[in-house]
Simulated scan of single mutants.
Amino acid sequence: MIERTFDSGAQNERTALAWTRTALALLLAAVLATRLAAEPLGVLAVAFGAVTAPLAVLVLLMARRRYRRAHDALHGERALPDGRLPALVTLITGLLAVLEIVYAVIG
């Protein structure tokens, strides 16, 4: 149970909210990109959506876990969470870019 913030500026809480907004934006981008590319790209666009939308939801779940781990680490003077969450966001962003390039070339 999280009882109090580590600092008065609530940096960990603000960071958690930023990760949540990022995850929701990625989910929306994945759904919209899939929808826009569905007609010209067909099955490729649907496969893209089937991969990226769950990954965006995974970002949301990982962000929540990262907040709890960071909170525990700050209060226990342990190491902060690793870079898996930023790496996953980078992967999803790269996949979105590839889909948009393919859409621009074919569509």
Rank of each mutant, 00 (worst) to 15 (best):
M1H: 10
R4L: 07
T5Y: 12
T5H: 12
T5I: 07
T5L: 09
D7H: 09
S8G: 06
A10C: 14
A10L: 12
Q11D: 09
N12D: 05
R14N: 10
R14D: 07
T15L: 15
T15D: 15
A16K: 00
A18C: 06
A18V: 06
A18I: 06
R21C: 09
R21K: 06
A23L: 03
A23F: 02
A23V: 03
L24A: 03
A25F: 03
A25D: 13
L26N: 00
L26D: 00
L27Q: 14
L27G: 14
L28F: 13
A29K: 05
A30L: 01
A30C: 13
V31M: 12
V31R: 13
L32G: 02
L32V: 14
L32T: 13
R35H: 12
L36Y: 03
A37W: 01
A37G: 03
P40N: 10
L41V: 10
L41K: 03
V43R: 14
V43F: 15
A45S: 12
V46R: 12
F48N: 02
F48S: 05
G49S: 11
V51W: 06
V51T: 13
T52L: 07
A53V: 15
A53W: 03
P54V: 14
P54K: 12
P54E: 10
L55H: 10
A56V: 10
L58S: 15
L58G: 13
L58A: 15
V59D: 00
L60F: 14
L60H: 12
L61I: 10
L61W: 09
M62I: 05
A63I: 03
A63P: 07
R64Y: 07
R65M: 08
R65H: 10
R65D: 13
R65F: 04
R65E: 14
R66F: 00
R66N: 05
Y67I: 04
R68N: 05
R69M: 05
R69W: 01
A70Q: 05
A70V: 00
H71V: 03
A73V: 01
H75Y: 03
H75L: 10
H75K: 03
H75D: 01
G76P: 02
E77D: 11
R78L: 13
R78G: 04
R78I: 02
A79H: 08
L80F: 09
P81I: 00
P81W: 01
D82S: 14
G83T: 10
R84T: 07
L85P: 02
P86F: 04
A87E: 08
A87I: 03
V89F: 08
T90G: 07
L91M: 08
I92F: 04
G94W: 15
G94A: 13
G94S: 11
L96Y: 01
L96Q: 11
A97Y: 04
A97N: 06
I101A: 11
V102C: 04
V102I: 09
Y103V: 04
Y103T: 05
A104T: 09
V105E: 06
V105G: 06
I106M: 07
G107P: 01
G107E: 04
G107Q: 02
G107V: 02
